[in-house]
């Protein structure tokens, strides 16, 4: 029964496509094109270079804003998790920033900085940062004091303590922040692009919406979902496995 792990997901995917096909036939409207139509549009968009270009632009924004948000968020999260005073002071800020709607940050960034690339990146970072901080802060609070004492007693340097004692304990929290972060960021990026950029997936989707070109919208969606899944399987899963290999 070795082939089972592959067959079940494949079957479920086929079932989804069949369901889509069935509904498309039933409705018979150009607002719900059949899978085959979408596949053709997808292929044409890839060959023309349009989709790779806009997808690439969006992915680049995603990588930059994600990296900035994760690095800053981890650093601030660790500091807040270790210092009760700083945490007591900044806790309110966090709550406020967590609850500001993404759309408000985006609009304000564009109003204050203009319709420029840095404003777009900043808007995404501000939206994601509080989430990372809160997650990493919880991880830092849960650090094993016994191991920290051990490190102190044996004269570990700050860097050594961070790398060998603190980081492995934070890893699950950072991975959680990464997963939820990617899902959140790419949704926000599309809105950022829709409102104030002249390229990227968000911009394209806006264009297709005005043209009522549903086939193209679905084609771009499929492309994006595939890219994110490949990232999950090729990068995140192996990272998880190598970090968990010490577990029984």
């Amino acid at each position: 029964m070795k082939f089972r792990p592959f067959i079940l997901p494949a079957l479920s995917l086929l079932a989804l496509i069949a369901l889509w096909q069935g509904v498309a036939l039933l409705v018979d409207s150009h607002t719900l094109p059949a899978p085959y139509t979408v596949a053709v549009v997808l292929w044409q968009a890839i060959v023309s270079g349009q989709l790779p270009y806009h997808l690439g632009v969006t992915l680049l924004r995603l990588v930059v804003s994600f990296t900035v948000a994760m690095l800053m968020g981890s650093a601030i999260g660790i500091v807040l998790g270790r210092s009760e005073k700083l945490n007591a002071f900044f806790d309110n800020w966090l709550v406020i920033f967590l609850n500001v709607p993404a759309l408000v940050t985006i609009i304000l960034c564009y109003v204050w900085l203009g319709l420029v690339e840095s404003a777009a990146i900043l808007a995404v970072v501000i939206n994601k940062l509080p989430n990372v901080i809160v997650t990493v802060r919880e991880g830092t609070r849960a650090l094993d004091q016994d191991l920290l004492e051990m490190a102190r007693c044996y004269g570990f340097s700050k860097g050594k303590t961070l790398r060998h004692v603190i980081w492995p304990q934070l890893h699950p929290f950072v991975m959680a922040a990464t997963r939820s972060g990617l899902a959140l960021i790419w949704k926000i990026i599309l809105v950022v692009e829709l409102l104030g950029r002249s390229n990227g997936m968000g911009y394209q989707l806006h264009l297709f919406f005005q043209l009522f070109d549903v086939a193209s919208i679905l084609a771009y969606t499929v492309a994006f979902v595939v890219v994110m899944q490949v990232f999950e399987v090729a990068v995140l899963k192996p990272l998880d496995r190598s970090a968990q290999r010490w577990r029984r």
């Binding site: 016994d146 191991l147 492995p168 010490w246 577990r247």
Partner: peptide, 8 residues
């Protein structure tokens, strides 16, 4: 307790 780093 031994206080070994479980990930090393």
């Amino acid at each position: 307790n031994p206080r070994l780093l479980p990930w090393r």
